[in-house]
Computed example of a mutant assay.
Amino acid sequence: MIKVGFMGGTFDPIHYGHLLAAESAREACGLDEVWFIPAGHPPLKENGPLADGQTRLEMVYRAIDFQPHFRGMDVELEREGTSYTIDTVKSLMELYPDREFSIIIGSDRVNDLPQWHQINELAALVRFIGVRRAGEELKVDALPAFLQERLSIIEMPQIGISSTDIRNRRAQGRSIRFLVPEKVYSFIRRNGLYES
């Protein structure tokens, strides 16, 4: 069985923090591949992404083209309506029956797990890899037992980068160089993304 971890998210834009989390999970959990799946319409985000789905997917492709264990997927962008993880997992399992899937999530999402759509069914299908980030408290003991049993917590080097900060910097005319991979930086500048 090929072990795949996948990261969902808006990736608006993808940055070095995402890549570092993916590599940390790959190494710590012995994953064969990590897939990046930009969300179409994420249910737990108050505001939708600023860049459209194909633009965000293109940034993912540019960010990971050097890493043979990373792959970008458009499975959520092709689907209409809200992007629920359970639907993504079922699609992936149908398309790739030879894979065993884990979901890589940030520590902020670990605490949200009980709120996820059809979480009982989802937890029966996949494992969760929680990536501990600086300044965010993990409340693993507060999670239901069935989630604690399906959750691994890993550490990653601390890096204080967020997509929100990158978008704000661009809107203010400040540099984002070295916060995102060079090919993503060039793509953002060339396309005038996130400018005020």
Rank of each mutant, 00 (worst) to 15 (best):
G8H: 10
R127Y: 06
R99S: 12
I104T: 00
V131A: 00
I105N: 07
I2A: 11
S163G: 14
S175I: 10
P43G: 01
S152D: 10
V89R: 03
E46H: 12
A124K: 14
A171E: 12
R127H: 14
M1L: 11
L113P: 02
G17E: 10
R133F: 10
L138I: 15
T82M: 13
K90C: 12
Q158C: 10
L113N: 01
I104E: 04
I188P: 01
K3W: 04
S162D: 04
I161T: 05
R56T: 06
Y61A: 12
E27I: 14
M7C: 08
Q54S: 13
S107G: 11
F178V: 09
K139C: 13
T88C: 07
E121I: 07
T10Q: 07
F6G: 08
D112P: 00
F101I: 09
V34W: 02
L50G: 09
L113K: 02
R177S: 10
I2L: 12
I119R: 08
E46L: 11
R133D: 06
G8P: 01
D65Y: 11
M59K: 07
Q115K: 13
P157N: 08
A124V: 05
R133V: 07
A51D: 00
T55F: 02
V180E: 01
I103P: 03
Q158W: 10
I176H: 07
M59Q: 07
H18N: 09
L50I: 14
V131H: 05
A28W: 00
S83F: 04
P114D: 09
D74T: 01
G173T: 05
V75M: 11
A145L: 14
E155R: 09
N120Q: 14
I64A: 07
F128S: 04
G17H: 10
A142R: 13
L147P: 04
